[in-house]
């Protein structure tokens, strides 16, 4: 039985299993696994042969553009938040989504608290695994906590300076 997570703004049963490094013997019936970038690099063929889908977990210190060629065809990329205050993966996410046009599932893992969720959503994470003690319903609500934005991130917002074109300055 897998955990529940947020995906596409809804609370769903997680379809993926994280395959820890060194743990080789997970049944292929699991279907969808997430492996580290290091493991993906060394066991790519075997993993593809064994599992229906393989996602890759990228450390937040990795140059996402340099790694991109190896993972651009993956159905899922997971990025890490060792602590909720460590925002490196937010930049990785924005670059992945906007510059590298990654369209697969983008997952946030780690110390994901409810009050990080809003920022994750804006940076293009559509798959969010909150820390175990977090209330999922509350996390889901956090996605839409602030409905307006000045700037675009990897989301639906248009920058305010573009939206205001053609309008006179308010006084």
């Amino acid at each position: 039985m897998t955990a529940k997570i947020l995906h596409g703004g809804e609370i769903v049963q997680d379809a993926w299993t994280v395959l820890e490094d060194g743990c080789a013997e997970i049944e292929s019936s699991v279907g969808r696994v997430i492996v580290t970038l290091a493991r993906w690099r060394t066991e790519r063929e075997a993993l593809l042969a064994r599992y229906a889908a393989v996602g890759v977990l990228v450390p937040n210190t990795t140059d996402i553009e340099a790694a991109h060629l190896e993972i651009s065809d993956r159905p899922l990329i997971a990025l890490q938040f060792p602590t909720f205050t460590d925002g490196r993966a937010l930049s990785q996410a924005v670059v992945l989504r906007k510059r590298l046009a990654f369209r697969g599932e983008l997952r946030a893992l780690g110390d994901v608290i409810r009050d990080l969720v809003f920022w994750l959503g804006r940076c293009g994470f559509d798959s969010i695994v909150p820390r175990k003690d977090q209330n999922l319903e509350s996390c889901r609500a956090a996605l839409n906590e602030i409905t307006v934005a000045y700037q675009a991130a990897a989301d639906h917002h248009t920058p305010v300076w573009i939206r205001r074109r053609g309008q006179a300055a308010a006084h």
Binding site: W119, Y150, A153, W161
Partner: peptide
């Protein structure tokens, strides 16, 4: 203009 760009900018909210 810069104030608006950096205010609640999600990418740079956890520097």
């Amino acid at each position: 203009l810069l104030r608006q760009y950096i205010t609640l900018n999600p990418e740079f909210y956890w520097l």
